[in-house]
Amino acid sequence: MKKWFIALFAVLTFSMAAQATIEVYEFENLQQEQQFKELGNTLRCPKCQNNTIADSNAELAQDLRHKVYEMTKQGKSKDEIVDYMIARYGNFVTYNPPFTVATSILWLGPLAVVVLGFGIIVLRSRKTKKAATDEQWDQDKEQRLKALLDEENNGDKQ
């Protein structure tokens, strides 16, 4: 019984090591290999979110690598492969999404907030200046000021 347990343990251990194999892709020419590497480093794994499909070990990333490999072997261009991935997984699959109506808020939102904030600051500062200049300086205020200054100056002399 002990021998069976050790044998089962050894089989399971070696089968786990077989799962951790390195994927090797063979190409017809150097250009295809470079295209595959470039796409692997520019396409994002939809599951991992911040890893490229070349860096990710997720099953989805492995499937995407395999699909990129197949399409590269078929002679598809980089743009055709990226368009296929965008059609299937959306703009999220690229690290640099294109400027569209849907992404315009992400691109223009911060700029709009800065411009709006600066505009509010300018308008409020103009209102404050205008309110200060709108107060009329009349003779009554002038006489009270002189009386206070005379009172203060007389207090210093004594």
Rank of each mutant, 00 (worst) to 15 (best):
L8S: 07
L8T: 09
L8I: 11
L8Y: 00
F9E: 00
F9H: 03
F9D: 00
V11I: 05
L12M: 11
T13C: 12
T13D: 00
T13V: 12
T13R: 03
F14Q: 10
S15W: 02
S15Q: 08
M16I: 14
A17F: 15
A17E: 10
A18W: 08
A18H: 05
Q19Y: 09
A20Q: 12
A20T: 04
A20R: 10
T21G: 13
T21E: 14
T21A: 13
T21Y: 08
I22P: 00
I22V: 15
E23T: 04
E23V: 11
V24H: 07
V24G: 00
E26S: 03
F27T: 02
E28V: 08
N29H: 13
N29S: 03
L30C: 04
L30H: 02
L30K: 11
Q32E: 08
Q32S: 05
E33G: 11
E33V: 02
Q34A: 15
Q35D: 04
Q35L: 13
F36P: 00
F36I: 03
E38A: 15
E38I: 09
G40R: 06
N41P: 00
N41E: 12
N41Y: 09
N41R: 04
T42N: 10
L43R: 04
L43I: 10
L43H: 10
R44K: 15
C45K: 02
C45T: 03
C45N: 10
P46C: 12
P46E: 06
K47A: 07
K47R: 14
C48G: 14
C48P: 06
N50M: 08
N50R: 03
T52I: 06
I53C: 11
A54I: 02
D55S: 14
S56C: 15
S56Y: 03
S56W: 11
N57F: 09
N57P: 06
N57D: 15
N57T: 13
A58Y: 05
A58S: 08
A58D: 12
E59T: 14
E59K: 03
E59A: 09
E59F: 04
L60S: 05
L60P: 02
A61N: 13
A61L: 09
A61C: 09
Q62L: 07
D63E: 14
D63K: 12
L64C: 03
R65C: 06
R65Q: 10
R65P: 00
R65M: 05
R65V: 02
H66G: 07
K67T: 10
K67M: 07
V68Q: 05
Y69F: 13
Y69A: 04
Y69W: 09
